[in-house]
Amino acid sequence: MNGSTHSAENPLRVAVLISGGGTTLRNLIEKIAADQLWIKITMVVSSTAKAKGLQYATDADIPSTVVDWSTYDSTESFSTAVFDACRAAQADLIVMGGFLKHVLIPDDFENRVINIHPSLVPSFCGAGFYGAKVHQAALDYGVKVSGCTVHLVDNHYDHGPVVAQQSIPVLPDDDAAALAARVFEVECELYPHVLQAFAAGRVTIDGRKITMR
């Protein structure tokens, strides 16, 4: 991905992976429609046919497919099916949007898979930390700031190099739902900002050190 430059006329081809409601997918579709993102979503891959986010793909005339994790006997076979679908869609970059299943990153997609996590990694992340559990853990610990992290994906949960982070204050009367809502507001700005930087060729990757200009 280093140095790849795209434009509105030559957008970055993206596959979006989902497992649930698809709110991140909806946000990206809206940003593209507003001419704020030089990306084209060429495929939506869901880990379950029950994901409500598939409707957003249908409504936006985006091809979608279901790779049902429950029908695979190993992480390896599930991962192969997911990335085969992304290759078929000629995706330059894979964007996880509420994708809750573990995948193993093949060599040809190294540094080409990104995720957003609703905390300031490495706090409150890893296996089992998703959704309201993340925000409740932050509140239980008593932190004064939380936020979100965009990171590259490797073969471990929430472990890949950090691309960007955005913090928000934790308010005295926050519960998990209130904190989640405010973190999601900044997710909706940070994720497209990072994707636009990738599309514009403004991201340089050097091991775990990532520079976004």
Score class of each variant (00 low, 15 high):
Ser146Pro: 07
Gly97Gln: 13
Ser7Asn: 03
Gly147Ala: 01
Arg87Leu: 08
Pro63Leu: 05
Phe184Glu: 09
Met1Arg: 06
Asp73Ser: 13
Arg182Thr: 02
His159Glu: 09
Leu28Lys: 13
Tyr157Glu: 06
Phe129Pro: 00
Val162His: 04
Val67Glu: 04
Val103Asn: 00
Ser19Glu: 04
Asp59His: 09
Gly53Thr: 10
Glu189Ile: 10
Trp38Leu: 10
Ala138His: 06
Gly160Thr: 06
Met212Arg: 12
His135Trp: 05
Thr42Tyr: 03
His156Cys: 11
Phe198Lys: 09
Ala60Tyr: 11
Ala89Ile: 01
Val16Ala: 13
Ala181Arg: 15
Ile105Met: 05
Lys209Cys: 05
His117Phe: 00
His156Asn: 14
Asp92Thr: 03
Tyr141Phe: 12
Asn10Tyr: 09
Ala177Tyr: 13
Asn155Ala: 03
Gln36Tyr: 01
Ala8Lys: 13
Asp35Met: 01
Pro169Phe: 01
Ser4Ala: 14
Ser146Gln: 09
Asp107Lys: 08
Ala15Tyr: 05
Ala200Cys: 02
Thr75Ser: 10
Asp154Lys: 11
Phe124Lys: 07
Gly207Ala: 03
Asp59Phe: 04
Asp68Val: 07
Phe124Gln: 00
Asp158Tyr: 06
Pro118Met: 06
Val95Gly: 01
His193Ala: 15
Ser19Gly: 09
Ser4His: 07
Asp108Leu: 06
Trp38Glu: 14
Tyr141Val: 08
Ala81Lys: 12
Asp92Cys: 04
Thr48Ala: 05
